[in-house]
Amino acid sequence: MTPVPPRSILVIVIGFALWGAAFVTLYAVNAIGCAFGWPPALQRGVIVGLAVAASGTMIAVTVWSAGHWRKAANAGRPAPSLARIGALGSAAALGATIFVFVPSVFVSMCV
């Protein structure tokens, strides 16, 4: 049995780790904008820009994870299932990103 390098585990968690960081950043910026009284147009623009940047990053991570999965399967590397789990996890994180960030475009900024 060939040992699996510890860095292979990062493929599994990278999608939701980035999603969590983007989620915290988006809502922290929203809270800061509300606390400092940013104009609504500026605040909405910043929030939409962060949502688009996070979605783009998640798309890139999902494409990278899928490519990693293909390479691992074709090369016969140890535990290609880790790459598959990472690709599917990144796709799920992309779905979560879209599900959570789309409402930020439409809802009231400061309640």
Rank of each mutant, 00 (worst) to 15 (best):
F99E: 01
V61M: 09
F101H: 02
I32D: 04
R44D: 08
R44W: 04
Q43T: 01
I9M: 14
F23Q: 11
A41W: 12
L50T: 14
I9N: 14
M58Y: 03
S65K: 13
A66V: 14
A54S: 08
V4Q: 03
P5H: 14
S104P: 00
V107Y: 08
P40Q: 07
A21V: 14
G45R: 10
N30T: 09
W19L: 12
V46Q: 15
I9L: 14
G67L: 15
F36A: 07
V24D: 03
Q43R: 12
L10N: 11
N74F: 03
G89I: 03
G89Q: 03
A22S: 15
A96V: 01
M109N: 07
A87I: 11
A96R: 01
A83F: 04
G67Q: 13
A28M: 11
R84W: 10
A35L: 09
A79K: 00
A93Q: 03
S55G: 09
G49M: 10
V63D: 12
A31H: 02
A91D: 00
A91N: 07
S8T: 06
Y27Q: 05
A31G: 06
F101N: 02
W69R: 15
F23H: 14
P80R: 08
V4R: 02
V4C: 07
V29Y: 06
I12G: 06
I98K: 08
M1W: 12
S65F: 11
A22Y: 04
T25W: 13
L94I: 13
L18S: 10
G33I: 07
V111S: 06
V102L: 07
